[in-house]
């Protein structure tokens, strides 16, 4: 972003990479896949790189409002300085926070989740799919992220993206408004669960496996981790893969 600003360019979108997108070994490939799609389609975009900080979501959900606002206000200062208008992110937590919680602190942007952005690109004919590739005809189930679904009522965009791949979309018993959490929200990602009889991600992975799907599609970095771990816990990691929507599209496009 700094480079673009220096050369007087205004990108169409700011791609908010997020901490998982920057640092999580597995999830970096989602960032890369999404960027490849943006490059292929020719979307003019920028990232903040080292100027990006955590949105503060986990701090706020863990109760530390002060730390949240420190992160938020700093991020807003950076984004406002670059006159950012439109933000796209693959992380539903970043999406929710920037979209719903930054306005109260002076950050007003059009914020869209990458599932919505990809859906738009498909609808506009900018992404031309090759008929599903390795996913063609396969059973795929989509795991709703709480912060995309219930928190912001985005249920159809990710499903439209999956359907565009010419696959068989199968739903879990608990889906859409009744979707079961992966167990990571509310800052649970950053601590061990409280004592109980089972881990939430295992419960959810069992439900996903029961659909007979060979791919579990997700649209959230935390869900990706939790569902992958859940599938591993059931020793099904060789038969069943967990992918982000962007990865699936990039595979199909051969990039």
């Amino acid at each position: 972003m700094a480079e673009m600003a220096a050369s007087g360019e205004t990108p169409e979108i700011l791609f908010w990479v997020g901490c998982a997108g920057s640092f999580d070994e597995r999830y970096k490939s989602v960032t890369q896949a999404f960027v490849k799609i943006l490059n292929k389609v020719g979307v003019s975009f920028a990232v903040l790189g080292p100027e990006e900080a955590c949105t503060g979501d986990p701090a706020r959900r863990a109760g530390n409002e002060f730390l949240f606002q420190m992160q938020a206000v700093s991020n807003i200062q950076v984004m406002n300085a670059y006159e950012v208008k439109k933000v796209v992110t693959a992380c539903p937590h970043c999406f929710n926070t920037i979209k719903n919680e930054y306005p109260a602190l002076g950050g007003n942007y059009e914020v869209i989740h990458h599932s919505q952005f990809l859906q738009q690109l498909i609808n506009e004919g900018k992404i031309i799919l090759q008929g599903g590739g390795e996913f063609k005809g396969k059973k795929i189930t989509f795991h709703d992220s709480c912060y995309l679904g219930r928190a912001n009522d985005v249920y159809e965009a990710p499903r439209d993206v999956i359907r565009a791949l010419d696959v068989e979309l199968v739903e879990m018993k608990r889906c859409k408004t009744k979707g079961l959490c992966c167990g990571a929200g509310g800052a649970q990602m950053f601590k061990e669960p409280e004592p109980g009889k089972k881990d939430i991600n295992v419960e959810r992975a069992e439900e996903a496996l029961a659909t007979g799907a060979t791919t579990i599609a997700v649209g959230c970095p935390f869900c990706l981790t939790m569902m992958s771990d859940g599938v591993k816990n059931k020793e099904k990691e060789n038969e069943v893969k967990v992918y982000d929507l962007a990865e699936m599209l990039a595979k199909d496009m051969g990039i």
Binding site: S22, F23, K28, G49
Partner: peptide, 15 residues
Amino acid sequence: FSPWKFPPSDRFNWA
């Protein structure tokens, strides 16, 4: 500035 302990300068390493 991240919930994980990585230096901010590594944020662009994915590229």
